[in-house]
Design a protein around this nucleic acid. Sequence first.
DNA 1: ACTGGTTATAGTAGCAACTACTAAAAACTA
DNA 2: TAGTTTTTAGTAGTTGCTACTATAACCAGT
Lengths: 186, 186
Amino acid sequence: MMARIHKKLRQEILKEKIDSNPFLTDGELAVLLNVSIQTLRLDRLELGIPELRERTKQMAERAQDKLKAIASNEIVGDLIDLELDKQGISILHITPEMVFEKTQIARGHYVFSQANSLALAVIDAPTALTGVANVKYKMPIHVGEKLIAKAEVIRKRGNKSFIWVKTRNEKQEVFRAKFIMVSLEP
Amino acid sequence: MMARIHKKLRQEILKEKIDSNPFLTDGELAVLLNVSIQTLRLDRLELGIPELRERTKQMAERAQDKLKAIASNEIVGDLIDLELDKQGISILHITPEMVFEKTQIARGHYVFSQANSLALAVIDAPTALTGVANVKYKMPIHVGEKLIAKAEVIRKRGNKSFIWVKTRNEKQEVFRAKFIMVSLEP
DNA sequence: ACTGGTTATAGTAGCAACTACTAAAAACTA
DNA sequence: TAGTTTTTAGTAGTTGCTACTATAACCAGT
């Protein structure tokens, strides 16, 4: 008989295998771990790992949701109030994907994106673009914080709109931006 | 007998149904379309639509790849040259996800993100953050363009770095940014 | 050395969601 | 009315399982 490794260790390896390639059948896994298919299924049962088809389905569903969430980034943040050509408010929740791993501080471009998207949303032009942006980051923003961005249209002149955006977390102002948006319409 | 719709039309509907919910079995689809399961399978065969399990698997695989691509967004754009504390160059390819559907013009925050990420990469500080950014969009950027961003460290003073980023497509300068990056280190 | 408990393997029945195939009924069409 | 297309019925076989029963192997303690 081959040297048999302990159940516990084997189950650890099983977890890793499935993690690195979730598309392996019980049969394939059994060969990899050098056990019978029954043993393998027992292991899977004990670890609460669903069968291949169920795993595949879960992956498909979850990934779809995630992609949908990302695709809905038309406006970064949730628009919760909007008066066209006047003002608008959006909320952005800082998730772990948005921060630097080391410091857990938000990458600047997410905060910018929220403000920029909001600035674009408040002006009532189908073909507007950002022309100029002056931004200031006042405080580091941490994971878990909820950022509330408030945009105000200050002035309109020809095809240009001047917009201020102020972003705060629960406590204070953390970011500030001034945009000049340009409408390209004929 | 129930009013039977034409094969062609039915197959169109079938496509739509599967598109809107790929997790329907042949049995469920047959009921929805009011035909026998054999007919439904014939239709699926003619349309080259794989069975539920195969569809699920394909979705899982593709979505996984897509998510992986998105997760590697640590630096937006590909860093192709870097001299710490001096200069750096990155390239960003404008994909259909990055543009406004209507105009096919790039959303401003992607261009900003490329420049901002690059500015961060060139300064040799593990805990640097964006302090101030002044940016100017000079030309509309279209889908398919390759943006080459070039960052230069202009000055360092205390924990502050002053960085210029100029972004051009194949023909001309399309974007320009001035960043003040702040290092938080003790 | 024997007993008991854990661990591993073998094997059967059954299921879902199919493919692949044959055959016949129904509907439409020239 | 004959011929063709479309639809339905039914059978056999496949994959990747679950659920269950039964037996074998191993390991440890007394």
